[in-house]
Amino acid sequence: MRARIMLGATGVGLGLWGLWLLLSVLEPRALFHLPLWLGGAVVADDALLVPLIIVLSVVVTHHIVRTTLLYVGITTLLAIPLLLRQGKGANPTILPRDYLRDWLLLEAIIIATGAAVFLFQRFTFNRSRASSDDIGGR
C-alpha cells in the first residue's frame, strides 16, 4: 500500500510539474484553447474512433475480414494528414511521395493479403473436413 501511495504521489508531482510548465510558457489565448483541443482528442477517440471499431467488430464477425478492415482503418487514419497536406509541404523534401498512389497501393496489398489468408483457410478447412470422418461437419 505504501508503495502504491508513493507511486501515486510521484505521479501527481510529475503531472503538476507538467501543468506548471504549461502555465509558465503558454500565452492566455493558448491556455484557453488547449483544453478545447484536449477535449477534442477525447471526443475523437471515445465518440468516433472506438465506437467505429465496436460497430465494425459487431457487424463483421469473420475474424480475417475484421482484421483486414481494422488494418485498412488504422493505416488510413495515419494517411489522412499526409493526403491532406500533399503538395503543401514547407519545402519539396517534405511529403515528397505520391501519397494517394502509395495509400491506394498499401490498402490494395492489405486487402489482397486478407483475401489470400481467407481463401487459404477456407481451402485447408474444407480439406480437413473432407478427410475427417464427420463429413458434413456434424
Binding site: 501515486g8 507538467g18 504549461l22 503558454l26
Partner: peptide
Amino acid sequence: QTHYALGWIIVGALLVHIA
C-alpha cells in the same frame, strides 16, 4: 513547449493510473 509539458503530464497521470 506544449509537447514537452504534455509529456510530463502523461507520465504523471500514467503513474497515478498504475498505482
